[in-house]
């Protein structure tokens, strides 16, 4: 069952049409990777889902209810650059959030969330927090009132590799509590934790579905041959009807047939590797 659906959503800012008939569906329980280039409209889509921006046309339905501008549905939100009141402590900020949503047993719940995201429950003020700590505080505030869905906007792009790994592990660990929609342009993040993916390009979702099924359907198995010299690689490329890159030639045809063909011409590759279908391949194909 789809928890969130967007149908024919249009949104323009001035003369710039950002979304042109966007259709998107997030199944219950998914970690949905919402992929697109910078400026493709990922943040705008999220703000529409949250009721922070008015729709031009189309419909958004969350848990069976239509989403309207100015009305919130209890969706947790982690903005790309979360901003807090620097003079509050993490506990004070979470308490403010919790009182807004009338979260029961707030004192215990705040302690629980601070523990979950690994922030100290001290009087230290937020203005001294690192970016990673601010992201984690954002997750704590977003999940505080146990929302059915969590939207994360480019949550890892400001983090260093270690912080990124930590953050993705945190997301994966809360996955059993909530459905997650994660926007990003970092494809390896999607491959690491997402089970669904949608690619936004030119104001529309070009493709969406379960990650593995999409990869299988849209990408062909390929093999990469490496040769001793670049001249050899050139000859091999001409023979196989492919393009050589330095000493490597990649072919999408049957590897066994290609190898037989090469050996018949006494072209001996020094290595050959099957290439796993990757999201990057799919992405490049879709936005081309």
């Amino acid at each position: 069952m789809d928890l969130l659906t967007l149908t024919k959503v249009n949104k323009a800012f001035g003369s710039q049409q950002v979304l042109k008939g966007l259709d998107l569906a997030v199944p219950q329980g998914a970690i949905y990777g919402f992929v697109g280039e910078n400026g493709a409209g990922k943040t705008t889509t999220m703000r529409l889902i949250l009721g922070l921006e008015p729709l031009d046309s189309g419909t958004i339905t969350f848990a069976g209810q239509p989403v309207r501008f100015g009305q919130t549905q209890g969706i947790g939100y982690l903005p790309d650059v979360p901003a807090y009141y620097g003079d509050l402590s993490a506990r004070e900020y979470l308490t403010l959030c919790g009182r807004l949503t009338h979260t029961p047993h707030l004192h215990e719940r705040v302690g629980e969330m601070l523990h979950l995201v690994g922030l100290p429950d001290t009087r230290r003020r937020v203005h001294g927090f690192s970016r990673g700590m601010k992201q984690r505080l954002g997750i704590a505030s977003a999940l505080l009132d146990r929302p059915a869905m969590l939207l994360c906007d480019e949550p890892t792009s400001a983090l260093d590799p270690a912080g990124r790994r930590e953050f993705l592990a945190l997301l994966a660990s809360v996955h059993n509590e909530t459905t997650i929609l994660l926007s990003t342009h970092i494809l390896s993040d999607v491959e690491r934790i997402c089970d669904y993916v949608g690619i936004l390009h030119a104001g529309k979702l070009q493709v969406q579905g379960p990650l593995q099924a999409l990869l299988a359907a849209h990408t062909q198995p390929a093999t990469c041959f490496t040769f001793g010299t670049e001249t050899e690689a050139q000859t091999a490329a001409t023979l196989l009807g492919a393009v050589a890159k330095a000493d490597q030639v990649t072919v999408t045809a049957d590897a066994r047939a290609a190898l037989t063909q090469l050996l018949a011409q006494h072209l001996m590759p020094t290595a050959f590797n099957p290439i796993k279908a990757s999201l990057e391949q799919l992405f490049m194909e879709v936005i081309a």
Partner: peptide, 15 residues
């Protein structure tokens, strides 16, 4: 300027 209202409005704070 600072965007401090975004999270709170998303949580149901009325403008």
């Amino acid at each position: 300027n600072e965007g401090t209202l975004v999270i709170l409005v998303a949580k149901g704070l009325r403008r």
